[in-house]
């Protein structure tokens, strides 16, 4: 069974602007996939469908066999862990511990079990010692790691990260990559940071103008200069795809 299955997904905002025009994709368990695309391609809109914040105008989204519908929202949100671009949006509780506990507590976990889950999640991102600190006292990179922990605590089927490398310094970027590589969950990483996609994901999808324009091994897609240019994607200056 695939972790994520999206078929013929189309969506228009209430103001009439259509953002998605029939997206098809499927991601199997424990795969790490990058979703690439220029600004305005509909990446964030697509992500918002994955846990039912937006409801599909047409088509379906299925998470580990469960279709995303009004009556399955609770279950779906448990299975899809969304990490927002700005960790300040995600870390809204007074302490790191409370924040990581928020998701599992909403799912009904209490007491010692909750404590165990929280500690486990923080351990996986190497932030256990920050447990009782307020989020706004942490560095940006630390906050992003805690944001990942808040989602891991819910033991999701699939982890969806929106621009995980943005605003990180090189060391924090490497640390996050190490953490992501160490996790045994399915990862969908939305980004326009192409080297990061290459570093972490075997496979990539290109979302452009509201449809999936390409799907294949990251290395091949990034080596295709024409394809990248057609979709307003660019490798950083001086960056070359290492020879296979």
């Amino acid at each position: 069974m695939n972790s994520l299955e999206v078929s013929q997904l189309a969506y228009a905002y209430p103001d009439g602007t259509q953002a998605l025009f029939g997206v098809d994709l499927s991601i199997s368990r424990a795969e790490r996939v990058a979703l690439l695309g220029p600004n305005g391609a509909g990446k964030t809109t697509l992500v918002m469908h994955l846990n039912g914040i937006l409801t599909a105008g047409h088509g379906t989204v299925t998470v580990a066999g469960t279709p995303v519908r009004k009556d399955t929202l609770k279950e779906v949100r448990q299975r899809v862990g969304l990490v927002f671009q700005d960790p300040d949006d995600q870390l809204f509780m007074p302490t790191v511990r409370d924040d990581v506990a928020f998701g599992p507590a909403n799912a009904g976990v209490r007491g010692e079990e909750l404590d165990r889950v929280v500690k486990g999640a923080l351990e996986r991102v190497g932030m256990l010692e920050a447990m009782d600190r307020p989020p706004h006292h942490l560095s940006f990179g630390q906050r992003r790691r805690v944001a990942v922990a808040t989602v891991l605590a819910m033991e999701p089927e699939i982890l969806v990260l929106d621009e995980p490398s943005s605003n990180l310094d090189p060391a924090a970027r490497r640390e996050l990559a190490e953490i992501l590589r160490s996790l045994d969950v399915t990862v969908l990483m939305v980004t326009h940071d192409l080297p990061y996609a290459l570093e972490l994901c075997e496979r990539s999808l290109i979302l452009s103008d509201g449809v999936i324009a390409a799907d294949g091994p990251t290395r091949e897609l990034l080596a295709d200069a024409d394809l990248l240019a057609r979709h307003r994607l660019e490798l950083p200056y001086g960056f070359a795809i290492p020879a296979v």
Binding site: R77, D86, D89, G103
Partner: peptide, 23 residues
Amino acid sequence: ERGERVHLAMLSRGYSGQMPIIH
């Protein structure tokens, strides 16, 4: 707008109008 994003982040982690009792 941040308020709206925070609300989305809360929804994403199962918020349904009640703060889970943590303390």
